[in-house]
């Protein structure tokens, strides 16, 4: 009788050990835990992108939820050949643009102004209330400077700052060459700095 060679069974990788693309494929096939891992991995950067992209802070939470619900709805359309981050931020960007377009068409929309700044002390992790207040103040000024950028510079900056996408990938997403992305980043960073200096923030 021939001995049957037993092939060792490789342990099933845990979701945490998998790449984004594999996780998304798993979720598309019905693994809910894979979604939780993806969500945990990307929620911070998606939220940060939204905060920088849209000045309407009352829309941030809605948009955030909208992005992931769009991802859930479109899970079957995802193909592992595409990089997950690119796909996720295509969805995020599209949700943000939709929301801003919608906001612009609402006659009663309140446009944000300088004074719109809401200082959220709770959002800061400073060691003392004063540090927290300072951090919060700085954060609001920086966000304000980012919001004052032209759309194309703002989205290039937010994509590069909040994701691990390369210039080429950002260019592909925005429909422009990588060199244009770099130029936009240069202008954006210079403008942010200029704005902050104007606001009295010193290096």
């Amino acid at each position: 009788m021939n001995a049957i060679a037993m092939r060792p069974i490789a342990p099933e990788p845990t979701p945490n050990a998998l790449g984004d693309e594999a996780l998304m494929t798993r979720y598309a096939q019905g693994d809910a835990q894979a979604f939780d891992t993806l969500f945990e991995r990307h929620r911070g950067s998606v939220y940060a992108f939204i905060q920088g992209f849209t000045p309407h802070r009352d829309q941030w939470d809605d948009l955030f939820q909208d992005v992931f619900i769009r991802l859930i709805r479109n899970r079957k359309r995802y193909r592992e050949t595409a990089r997950f981050t690119t796909w996720l931020y295509a969805i995020t960007r599209s949700a943000c643009i939709d929301a801003m377009r919608k906001a612009k068409t609402q006659a009663n929309l309140i446009q944000p102004t300088d004074g719109d700044t809401v200082i959220s002390l709770a959002a800061c992790a400073g060691s003392t209330p004063r540090d927290a207040a300072h951090e919060s103040f700085m954060r609001e000024r920086i966000l304000h400077a980012v919001h004052s950028l032209p759309d194309e510079q703002r989205e290039a900056l937010m994509l590069r700052e909040n994701t691990d996408m390369t210039f080429d990938e950002i260019g592909a997403l925005l429909g422009c060459p990588a060199n244009t992305v770099k130029s936009r980043l240069h202008y954006a960073l210079s403008a942010v700095r200029r704005r902050l200096i104007q606001d009295g923030i010193t290096p």
């Binding site: 929620r43 911070g44 920088g52 959002a123 400073g126 954060r139 909040n162």
Partner: peptide, 11 residues
């Protein structure tokens, strides 16, 4: 610094 002091994303 915007990242470091970022508001936590909702869950």
């Amino acid at each position: 610094s915007l990242h470091d002091s970022g508001q936590a994303a909702p869950d």
